[in-house]
Nucleic acid binder design. Structure first.
Length: 802
RNA sequence: GGGCCCGUAGUCGAAUGGUAAGACGUCACCCUGACACGGUGAAAACUCCCGGUUCGAUCCCGGGCGGGCCCACCA
C-alpha cells in the first residue's frame, strides 16, 4: 500500500531499479522493433550541470521514454565534451605551467574524469535514462582515433589543408586566443587624416582617415564605396602610401561607410577583422606587420617598436612631413583579451583548415530536408551558411585537445600523414611516420596544434553509430533519428555536423532537430556567477523532487525561446505530484478486492459518469499521442493536469464515493464498474505522465498495477491503447451538466456557510434539455446530498431549498 | 546594419476568424470518510498602437512602438 510520498526514497530507488531491470537498454540485435536513435549533445565537462542542461536533457529524456513506451528500440547514448580551454586554465591554476605536455594532458584527463562522475550522478538523480553502456568521452584514445581518421579521409579528399590565416593574438600573453575569449572595450582615440600621393587629383593627394597609422607599412589597398560619386574616377587608379611609398590600388567595396572619415579607407594586414574579410574577398597580399610580442615588422626604421610607441612616433613624423591634415577625437571599440584586458592583434600564422566555402549549398539543402522543431530555427542555419566568409580554422594552439594527425617537412612544407591503422597518433611526441621528407629529404616535424572542439563534437553521430568500426551497428543507428540541441550552437555544432557527415558519409547525420532555448534567472537575466543569480539544479531536486523539476521543464513552454525560471511553476509542479499521489492512494484503497483480469469477458454496468471518464481519457490519449510525437510537452502536462485535477479528482471521485462505500445499497455491479473506471483512468494517466515524472508514476504502478498488468515496470510497459469507440459525446454532455448542477449546489452551500457534505431538502433544476439529467440523478442526490430533485425545461437555473 | 522570436488580467501564460483557458498572487468561505501542498466561490484583460482584408480580428496582411536573442560592423 502507498504511504506518504517520499521522493528522496523512491527516486534513487527507481533510478537503481531501472538499471537492474535493463529498462533503458538498447538492443542492437533486436530486429523487430524500429530503432529510434538520439544524437544528444555531450555537455562540456565543467563539473556541474546547470539549469540549461536540466531543461534540455529533460526534453531528450521525455522523448526517449515516450518512444520506449511506443515500442521503439531506443538508442540514447550519453557523451562528454571534455577538451577545452577552461579545463586547461583550471589545471594550470592548480599545477602551474611547469608540466610537460604529456603530464599536463594526463592531469587534465584526471581532472575531467572527476567532473564527469559528478555530472553523471547529477544526470542520474534527474532520472535521465541514457543507456550508460554507450557512454563516450571526446578525450578518449578511441575518440581521438575516429577524429583523426575523419581528418585523414577529408585530407585525402582535399577538404583539409594547411595555410596562412589570421588569428586573434594577445601580444601581452604571447598566445593565440579564441574569439570567445575576447572582450570589447570603449575607448577614446584619434582619427587621423593622412595624405596619400595620387596623380589623379588636382592637389596630388587623396586623404584617408585611420585610427591605426602605425599600420601604414602594411597597407595593401584603398577602398571606397562603389556608389560614392566623389571618388568614382579614382577607382582602379593607384596611390602611394606616405613614409613607405608603396603603390596601392583603389578598389570598391560595399562594406565601406562613405560617411565615415573621408569615405576612403586604407586596408592593412591586419588592422581589424574587416581587413581579413577584404583580404579574402579581393584576394589581396598579406604583409606580416606585427610580431608575436606586438612589435612592428617590415616597417623600415620603425621596425622593432611596440605598437603604441610606433603610433606616437609615426604621427610625429607625419606631422613633421605635412602629411597629417588633422586629428579628430572619436570613440572606438577595441577588442581586448578577457584575462589580461590588453588590446589584441590579428596575426597570421600557419593553421589547419576545413574547406567549407563552396559547400554551403549541400549543407543548406540537407538541412532543409530535415524536420526542424520549431520550424523557424532552420533559418538560423541558413543565415549562417549565407554569411560564411572563409574556411573553418580547425587548429588551436592548445594542449588538451585532439592532436591534429599530420607531420610536415621543415624544409619544403610537404605534409606527411600517418597510416590509418596507427591511429591515434600524438605528433608532438610520436616519431614521424617516415624518417624524412619523401619529397626533399628534409626533417619532418609533428603538428603541435590540437583540434577545435567542434572538430571533435561534429562527428558525434558517427561516433555513436560506430562508424568505420561496426557496419551492422552503423546501418542500424545512422543517420540518427533525432538531434536535440540549443539555438546558440546551430551555427557551430549543427552546421559542422551536417557538413562533416555529408563529406564523410555522403548522408545527412540526422532526420529531426529539436531546438530548445535557454533558462534565464527568475529576474529574466542570464544566469551567471557574477550576477549571483544562478540556481543550482541539485538544490531544486532537494527541495522539490526530480519529478517536480522535470515537470517544471515541461511547463516551461515553447522551444527555442528563452524562459525565466519560476519558483511558482515548480511549486505547482510539486503540488501536482502530491495530488497524483494522494488520489492514487484513494484509488488503491477503492480497488481492494478488485481484479481487472476477472472483468475480462464480463459486461460491466457503467453509469454515465463512468462513460464520461472513459470518453475523456481516450480523448486525452489521442491528443497526447500527437503531442508527444510533436514534442509538445507543455500541451501534454497541462492537459493531463487539468483533466486529472479538475475532472477526475474534483468531480468524478466525489461522484462515485457512494458506490464504493455503500455497495450493499447501490449494488456490487455498480461498484465494480466504477472500480474498473478508476483502474483504467489512473493507469492511463500514469502512462501519459511516465515520461515526464517517471519516479512517482513508477512507484504508484508498482504498488497498484504490477500484479495485474504483468509488466515488470511502468518504464517497460506499453503506451495506452486508444479505444475510439469509448469517446462518447452524449455522456460528456450529461456529465458536464451534472457538474454544473453540483457547482451550483456547492456555491449555494458556500454562500450559506454550510458544510459541503450538509444535506439539502431539495434542488430545482431548470435546463434546456432536462432529460439529460435522467442518468445522473443518483450523483446529484449522493454527491450533492439533495433529498429531492425537480427538473423543468428552460434556461439553466438551479434553486436550492434547505 | 542584417536575421529571427515575442508583446494577452498585478505576475506568468494558453487558445481561437465570432470579445478570451489555466496557474500564482489577492479577497470571502469550507478541515466533503485520498489530499489544507486540499475544496467552493469572488474581484481582476478596451488581447501594445494605427491602418487594411472580413458580416465580424486578439488571432490574417501592412506600418509603427516596445522587449529579447543571434550575427555583422565601428577603418
Amino acid at each position: 500500500m502507498l504511504g506518504d510520498w517520499k521522493p528522496k526514497e523512491i527516486e534513487p530507488k527507481w533510478q537503481k531499479k531501472w538499471v537492474e531491470l535493463g529498462a533503458h537498454k538498447f538492443d542492437p540485435r533486436d530486429a523487430k522493433r524500429p530503432v529510434y536513435s538520439m544524437d544528444t549533445p555531450p555537455p562540456f565537462t565543467s563539473g556541474d550541470l546547470h539549469m540549461g542542461h536540466v531543461l534540455s536533457y529533460a526534453y531528450f529524456d521525455f522523448a526517449a521514454r515516450y518512444k520506449r513506451l511506443r515500442g521503439f528500440n531506443v538508442y540514447y547514448p550519453q557523451g562528454w565534451d571534455c577538451q577545452g580551454f577552461p579545463t586547461e586554465v583550471k589545471v594550470e591554476a592548480k599545477f602551474g605551467k611547469k608540466l610537460k605536455p604529456e603530464e599536463f594532458r594526463a592531469k587534465c584527463v584526471e581532472w575531467t574524469d572527476q567532473f564527469i562522475s559528478r555530472m553523471r550522478q547529477q544526470m542520474i538523480s534527474m532520472g535521465f535514462s541514457p543507456d550508460w553502456d554507450y557512454e563516450y568521452k571526446t578525450m578518449s584514445p578511441e575518440y581521438h582515433r575516429k577524429v583523426q581518421l575523419s581528418l585523414l579521409k577529408m585530407y585525402a579528399n582535399g577538404l583539409v589543408y594547411r595555410g596562412e590565416h589570421p588569428v586573434f593574438w594577445c601580444p601581452h600573453c604571447v598566445s593565440a586566443i579564441a574569439k570567445a575569449e575576447t572582450e570589447e572595450e570603449q575607448r577614446a582615440t584619434e582619427l587621423n587624416f593622412v595624405k596619400f600621393v595620387s596623380h589623379e587629383t588636382k592637389d596630388g593627394y587623396i586623404t584617408i582617415a585611420t585610427t591605426r597609422p602605425e599600420l601604414l607599412h602594411a597597407c595593401v589597398a584603398i577602398f571606397v564605396h562603389p556608389d560614392d560619386n566623389r571618388y568614382r574616377k579614382l577607382v582602379g587608379t593607384h596611390a602611394h602610401t606616405p613614409l613607405y611609398d608603396r603603390e596601392v590600388k583603389v578598389l570598391t567595396d560595399p562594406d565601406v561607410d562613405p560617411t565615415f572619415g573621408t569615405g576612403i579607407v586604407m586596408m592593412c594586414t591586419f588592422g581589424d577583422k574587416q581587413d581579413v574579410v577584404w583580404t579574402y574577398r579581393h584576394n589581396l597580399p598579406a604583409i606580416e606587420s606585427i610580431d608575436r610580442y606586438g612589435k612592428l615588422l617590415n616597417a623600415g626604421e620603425f621596425t622593432g617598436l611596440k605598437v603604441a610607441d610606433a603610433k606616437m612616433k609615426i604621427i610625429e613624423r607625419l606631422k613633421a612631413d605635412g602629411l597629417l591634415i588633422k586629428q579628430e577625437k572619436i570613440q572606438q571599440t577595441v577588442k581586448t583579451h578577457d584575462r589580461c584586458k590588453k588590446p589584441i592583434e590579428l596575426l597570421t600564422s600557419k593553421q589547419w583548415f576545413c574547406k567549407i566555402k563552396g559547400f554551403e549549398e549541400p549543407v543548406k539543402s540537407a538541412a532543409r530536408a530535415m524536420r526542424w522543431v520549431p520550424e523557424f530555427t532552420l533559418q538560423y542555419l541558413i543565415d549562417w551558411a549565407n554569411y560564411i566568409e572563409w574556411d573553418w580554422v580547425i587548429s588551436r594552439d592548445r594542449i588538451f585537445g585532439t592532436p591534429i594527425p599530420f607531420w610536415h617537412c621543415k624544409k619544403c612544407g610537404e605534409i606527411v600523414t600517418p597510416p590509418e591503422d596507427k591511429l591515434p597518433v600524438y605528433p608532438i611526441s610520436d616519431a614521424p611516420p617516415l624518417p624524412k621528407c619523401p619529397k626533399c629529404g628534409g626533417e619532418l616535424e609533428g603538428e603541435k596544434a590540437t583540434c577545435d572542439c567542434w572538430v571533435d563534437s561534429s562527428i558525434s553521430p558517427l561516433i555513436i553509430s560506430k562508424w568505420m568500426e561496426d557496419e551492422d551497428f552503423y546501418n542500424l543507428t545512422f543517420p540518427a533519428t533525432l538531434r536535440p540541441q540549443g539555438t546558440e550552437i546551430i551555427r557551430t555544432w549543427c552546421f559542422y555536423t551536417i557538413y562533416r557527415s555529408l563529406m564523410l558519409t555522403g548522408k545527412p547525420p540526422f532526420k529531426e532537430l529539436l531546438i530548445n532555448g535557454m533558462v534565464l534567472a527568475p529576474d529574466g537575466k542570464k544566469m551567471s556567477k557574477s550576477l549571483g543569480n544562478v540556481i543550482p539544479p541539485d538544490k531544486l531536486i532537494e527541495d522539490y523532487s526530480a519529478d517536480a523539476v522535470r515537470q517544471w521543464t515541461a511547463l516551461s513552454g515553447a522551444f527555442a525561446r528563452d524562459k525565466p525560471f519560476s519558483y511558482k511553476d515548480i511549486q505547482y509542479a510539486k503540488s501536482f505530484v502530491l495530488k497524483l499521489w494522494n488520489a492514487s492512494k484513494f484509488v488503491e484503497k477503492s480497488l481492494e478486492g478488485f481484479d481487472r483480469r476477472k472483468t475480462k469477458g464480463t459486461t460491466l454496468k457503467f453509469r454515465t459518469v463512468d462513460r464520461w471518464m472513459l470518453s475523456r481519457i481516450n480523448r486525452l490519449i489521442k491528443s497526447n499521442t500527437a503531442n508527444y510525437d510533436n514534442y509538445d510537452y507543455f500541451a501534454i502536462i497541462t492537459s493531463v493536469q487539468d483533466f486529472f485535477w479538475h475532472e477526475f479528482c474534483d468531480f468524478y471521485l466525489e461522484e462515485v464515493k457512494h458506490r464504493l462505500y455503500q455497495s450493499e445499497k447501490f449494488g456490487e455491479d455498480s461498484k465494480k464498474a466504477t472500480q474498473f473506471t478508476l483502474y483504467v483512468v489512473l493507469l492511463d494517466v500514469l502512462k501519459m505522465l511516465a515520461p515526464i515524472m517517471p519516479h512517482t508514476t513508477e512507484e504508484i504502478y508498482d504498488s497498484i498495477y504490477k500484479v495485474h498488468e504483468g509488466d515488470k515496470s511502468l518504464a517497460q510497459s506499453k503506451w495506452p491503447a486508444l479505444y475510439e469507440k469509448d469517446i462518447d459525446e452524449k455522456a460528456e454532455k450529461k456529465a458536464i451538466l451534472l457538474n454544473q448542477v453540483l457547482t451550483e449546489i456547492r456555491k449555494f452551500k458556500a454562500e450559506k456557510k454550510m458544510a459541503l457534505n450538509a444535506d439539502i431538502a431539495a434542488v430545482k433544476i431548470r435546463t434546456l434539455e432536462p432529460e439529460l439529467l435522467d442518468d445522473v440523478k443518483e450523483e446529484i442526490t449522493e454527491a450533492g446530498k439533495a433529498k429531492k430533485i425537480e427538473t423543468s425545461q428552460g434556461d439553466f437555473k438551479v434553486e436550492v431549498a434547505v
